[in-house]
Amino acid sequence: MKKKIEETMRVSIFEVFEKMFYIFLEPLDDESNEYDMEAAISFEGFLSGEVRLLLSMDIANTMIQNMLGLEKDEITRQIIEDCSKEAINMICGNFLGKLDSTKVFKLSIPSFIEGGSRPGPLNSMNQNQSSASAGMNFTGIETGKNAYKMDFDSDEGRIGVIIAAND
């Protein structure tokens, strides 16, 4: 299941970034913690959990410029928040649809924070997950067997995605 979750999530992330933001991502071997903001959404169904999207300010600005055609000086904090929430909503919805289109999932309203550390339900995950973010303090996430972190690079900057799922 872990492999399927990781692979499905990777495909979903690529699809959302290419179709909506015209950004082409490459998987990053090194782990990155250099992010400025985070959007999160939780889901319930046959699989329950949470997905978090970590963004640098540079890539957030590029996403908005590409998606809305705005100039950098026209971008407001509200637009950054809306865009980040929409991105995590699309990634999670796309991921769940690909995982099993016959099942219905309930998605929460996305949340958004800039910088800082988010104490959250993800820190209740168990241990023994190699790709989880050991030592990452941005989100307060500890390693867990069902928590995965993926980092991606692009010409416009880096993104990170964390998924924690309990099946």
């Binding site: 769940l96 289109s101 219905v104 998605l107």
Partner: peptide
């Protein structure tokens, strides 16, 4: 238009 695109939905 939605992100939630299960067959039932």
């Amino acid at each position: 238009i939605s992100t939630e695109s299960s067959e039932k939905r």
